[in-house]
Write a protein that binds this DNA or RNA. Structure first.
Length: 205
DNA sequence: CCAGGGATCCGG
DNA sequence: CGGATCCCTGGG
C-alpha cells in the first residue's frame, strides 16, 4: 500500500467507540501507520490488550483521572502513550465515550513499511537482515522504539493524518486467541490479551 | 532469573 | 518527604 491507499483506508471515529474488548480484538490485522518527514512507517497489528475502567484494577484509569492518564479519559480515537520502567514507552488506542477511560495497548506488530528505518532504531549497530524482522516490534516497548513513539505523541488524534490506523487484513475469528495479559499483577482473571494464533511477530510465543 | 531506570502515587 | 510500584527489555 502506498501513502494514498493507507490514508484512504484510515479507520474512522466510530471504530473507537466500540467496547474496549471488541476494539482490542478488531484491531488485529489492521495497520498502524506513521508518516514521518521522509519516511512512512507501517506495521500490521498482531497482538493487543484491553484495559477497561470499572472492574479492571490493572488499568491506569482505575483510580480515576490524573495528569498522567488524562488522555485515556478523552473520547475514543486518541493515542495514549506512557513512560514506564524508567526507559520505555507504551502506546495505547483510547476507546469509548468521553470520560470513560478505556484503552487498547498495542503489544506487537509485523513491520510492513519503513522496515529498515525501524530496525535501525532498535539495533543501531547491526545491519538489517530479513531473519530479524520478527524482533523489531515484538513487544510494546520495542514497537514504540521502532515507530519513535514517545511523550511527544501522547494525545495524538488518530483521526488525523500523522499517526493513524488503516484497514488492513481480515483475520479469521478462529485464528484470534485470547489469554491473560502480560506483566500485570492485578485483575489476572481477565483474558484480555488478544493475538493472532501462530503469528511469528507476537511478543510471547 | 534479575537489574536498570525515572515518573508517579500514596502513606506518614 | 521516602518507598513502592510499574501494561518492559536484554542479558545471564
Amino acid at each position: 500500500m502506498n501513502s494514498t491507499e493507507l490514508l484512504n483506508n484510515k479507520i474512522d471515529k466510530s471504530f473507537y467507540l466500540q467496547s474496549v474488548t471488541d476494539a482490542a480484538r478488531n484491531l488485529l490485522g489492521k495497520y498502524l501507520v506513521k508518516f514521518e518527514k521522509s519516511e512512512i512507517l507501517a506495521g500490521k497489528i498482531v497482538e493487543t490488550e484491553a484495559y477497561d475502567y470499572k472492574f479492571d484494577e490493572a488499568s491506569h484509569s482505575f483510580k480515576g483521572k490524573t495528569k498522567k492518564n488524562e488522555v485515556m479519559f478523552e473520547e475514543g480515537g486518541k493515542l495514549y502513550i506512557y513512560f514506564t520502567y524508567g526507559m520505555y514507552f507504551c502506546a495505547n488506542v483510547v476507546t469509548g465515550r468521553k470520560d470513560y477511560g478505556s484503552a487498547v495497548l498495542i503489544r506487537a506488530a509485523e513491520p510492513l513499511q519503513g522496515i529498515e528505518k525501524m530496525f535501525k532504531r532498535r539495533f543501531p549497530e547491526i545491519i538489517f537482515s530479513e531473519k530479524d524482522k520478527t524482533k523489531i516490534c515484538s513487544g510494546p516497548g520495542k514497537l514504540c522504539i521502532a515507530f519513535a513513539l514517545d511523550k511527544e505523541s501522547n494525545g495524538t488524534d488518530l483521526c488525523g493524518n500523522n499517526i493513524f490506523i488503516s484497514e488492513g487484513e481480515y483475520i479469521e475469528p478462529a485464528k484470534i486467541k485470547s489469554g491473560k495479559r502480560i506483566g500485570i499483577k492485578k485483575s489476572q482473571d481477565l483474558n484480555w490479551r488478544y493475538y493472532i494464533e501462530n503469528n511469528p511477530y507476537i511478543s510471547v510465543k
